[in-house]
Amino acid sequence: MAGGVSSSGGHSVSSAYAAVRNWLLAPSWITIAIFMLGPVLLMAVYSFLTKEFRGGVLWEFSLASYDQFFFDRGLFGDEPPKLHWTYLAIYLRSFIQASVATLLCLAIGFPTAYFIATRPASTRMVWLFLITIPYWVNLLIRTVSMKFLIRDTGPINEWLISFGLLEAPIKMVNTDFAVQLGLFYSYLPFMVLPIYAAVERYDFALSEAAADLYADRWTTLWLVLLPAVRPGIIAGCILVFVPSLGAFLAPDLLGGAKNFMIGSLIEEQFKGAAGNWPFGAACAMVLLTMVLVAVFLYARQQAANARGGG
């Protein structure tokens, strides 16, 4: 990425370099404009168009997609409108699953990252290497393998039964537990790596200083270490939460696709019998808006903290 060049340059760059810097950044700006802003704008426009039967759009302005999202007019569409829970419930479920996955990843990922960062420098790379090995395999293959492990006739259940610990297999596949396990497993390294990077930069002399001042281990963790590595934790949480929100491999393969997730609901509008492109676009816009509002509120709170704490 060309963008990385400028951030590592710092203040020591010559003025000649500063002049060409904008040009060096141009490829990344153009990439963002064409491949990110372009599709988002297209989607925003489509969400306000009229649907054409069986896919496609008519170029007439319409609010029907947003109306369909938020208001329920009954099975036949002629009852008085009331607030619609069908789609909101799908969004809520996706948010809850992504949140639980993030918390699980944090609970396992933080100690792991801390462990790796506190090893001698010579062995750290080996630990990191071990963490990344499973992720050289495609996500789909890993998800299917997970299904093999946890199915009724899979090795986990068969071992437990053969050792006499169980009478009948534990039902794991096609449950919320399986979806949660799949999300957690898929995104764990995204939590470990940024936290590792933050803990590695942490100056452990600070912990010693805290101990010298009679802080116990918990106090040191809460008041000294965690605030220092907070950027890494936040980066990890965002990297796990955002893809979990749109995930549909784990819900489809491990959860049995019984309930729509945000990802599969949107897919159905484009690829399914519904063929309602404007509604699919509106679903995506609602999600985008929710995430943007959350990020905005967070940024504002950070700014307020910075002012208050300065």
């Binding site: 099975l75 069908t86 799908i90 309930n259 729509f260 609901l265 019998a273």
Partner: peptide, 8 residues
């Protein structure tokens, strides 16, 4: 609508 309600 029936399908969406089913997979809600």
């Amino acid at each position: 609508r029936i399908w969406t309600r089913l997979k809600q």
